[in-house]
Design a protein around this nucleic acid. Structure first.
Length: 457
DNA sequence: GTTGAGCGTT
């Protein structure tokens, strides 16, 4: 049965509730949707005083007992991301880049966010009166800022209502983009600027594994590929169709494997890039518009952010982000080497159908698994009010306390999200500073929880 | 001293 599980980013911190599946397991994708980069769960065993790890298999976390009970779990992150643990010392030396799953020091290193570069971010919807100092104060909660700008009219010095920021590290950027922001009483959006479109290094985390044999189970593939990096999903079409999809947490791992042949259970499988789901096999090319490809949705890890020019797609497509634009030749099925007859056309068509059906695209950071959408129906906002110090400016952070389709509902049955920024009343709704501390003025939501001033998770 | 979808005097 489904229940909500309390998870904290670190022990002692305020937990957030994440929904389990009907079978009682917690999808790793559900966890990582709220805790980007998380790769597992643990909790402190009161009997022994030590931390106890939660079983993870095939992208699912299993309750330690008959259910999850009421204990508070702590999200586990790959060592390289656990900056808080490493403290301020030796932060520059990346002694280990391995994820916990990584074995035997292979030549594939899991870089996680290290390879993700920061971009300038545009901040839209700023109050006219907000200054760069205000922005710096507000956005510093997410991490070190390298740049803060508020665009003003050169003559009047009046703010144009938008600005730009840049974080020093991707993790900060990721966190910042994963939510909307209440700044001086207005909801503001942080997005990748249009001018930076295509400059992102979006890489597919999902690989196509061809020439699979029938005796290869998902566990086999997970075990095998686990030595190259953290595997977040394995998908084997049923009935047997001689191929599978393996999704890694790190797109670089996927890319490194592409083109290689590997021996699994005595059979030679071929690994190649999984095609985007909108690949147009009739014209033997992918769709021309990157927006139609879901590309603009692929980058911002903010699942609630609209894409530029209103191209927001429903978020029920699970899947992986895809190299696009900057990596023109690794898309589609053109790189599956038909000429070598490694796969027959029926197999390719079946593979494409699978990708189209279950979705090959998704936002970075929303580790996908199975057919479960990362965003469900009912969403409960958490509003944090942040007082901007002596400037008396007030800002609050909105994140989500729980995501799911509510009691009894399955996430798979969640309705698609409308393709516009009025979803959940955003886009046009603005909340006064006085309202911000209480119920957000966005329609249909339940009672928001409050968090201490300045808190982040 | 007004406005509220957008995209950056370098």
């Amino acid at each position: 049965m489904s229940q909500y599980i309390q998870v904290a980013e670190e022990e002692g911190e305020e937990p957030m509730e994440v929904p389990s599946e009907e079978d009682g397991t917690l999808l790793l994708s559900t966890l990582s949707a709220q805790f980007p980069g998380a790769c597992g769960l643990k909790y402190r065993n009161p009997d022994t005083g030590s931390m106890r790890g939660i079983r993870l298999a095939d992208g699912r976390l299993y309750p330690p007992d008959v259910d999850w009970s009421n204990r508070i779990y702590v999200a586990v992150f790959p060592k390289t991301e656990n900056k808080k643990k490493s403290g301020s010392t030796a932060s520059g030396s990346n002694a280990s880049t391995s994820s916990p799953d990584e074995q035997d020091g292979g030549h594939y290193k899991s870089k996680k966010y290290e390879r993700q570069r920061c971009s300038d971010l545009i901040v839209l919807g700023l109050p006219w009166k907000s200054t760069e100092e205000d922005l710096r104060k507000y956005f510093s909660q997410f991490g070190e800022l390298l740049m803060v700008q508020v665009k003003v009219d050169p003559k009047t010095r009046q703010s144009k209502g938008f600005g730009f920021i840049r974080f020093a590290d991707y993790d900060s950027q990721f966190k910042c983009m994963s939510q909307r922001h209440m700044i001086d009483g207005r909801w503001c959006d942080v997005r990748i600027p249009n001018s930076k479109e295509g400059a992102q290094q979006i890489m597919n985390r999902k690989v196509f594994v061809g020439r699979c044999t029938e005796d290869m189970t998902a566990e086999d593939l997970r075990n095998y590929f686990g030595k190259y990096g953290e595997v977040v999903d394995v998908f084997i079409p049923k009935p047997f169709r001689a191929f599978a999809f393996v999704t890694f947490a790190d797109p670089e791992v996927s890319q490194n494997l592409c083109g290689e042949d590997h021996i699994i259970k005595g059979a030679s499988v071929h690994i190649s890039s999984a095609a985007p789901k909108n690949y147009d096999r009739h014209n033997d090319k992918k769709s021309t518009s990157p927006h139609q490809l879901g590309y603009t949705q692929a980058y911002p890890p903010n699942p609630w952010s609209q894409g530029p020019r209103g191209t927001t797609q429903p978020m029920h497509n699970q899947g992986t982000p895809m190299a696009q634009g900057s990596l023109p030749n690794n898309l589609g099925l053109g790189n599956l080497n038909l000429g070598a007859l490694q796969f027959n056309p029926a197999m390719l068509a079946a593979a494409q159908a699978m990708l189209s059906g279950q979705g090959g695209w998704g936002p970075v950071g929303l580790v996908s698994q199975g057919n479960n959408p990362p965003v469900g129906g009912n969403v409960t906002p958490v509003t944090t009010t942040i007082t901007g110090g002596e400037t008396s400016s007030q800002a609050s952070v909105q994140s989500f306390g729980s995501i799911g389709s509510g009691s009894g509902g399955t996430m798979g049955a969640a309705p698609p999200i409308p393709n516009n920024n009025s979803f959940l009343g955003w886009g046009s709704s603005q909340v006064s500073a006085s309202e911000a501390g209480g119920s957000p003025g966005v329609g249909g939501w339940g009672t928001p929880q409050s968090k201490p001033s300045g808190a982040w998770n």
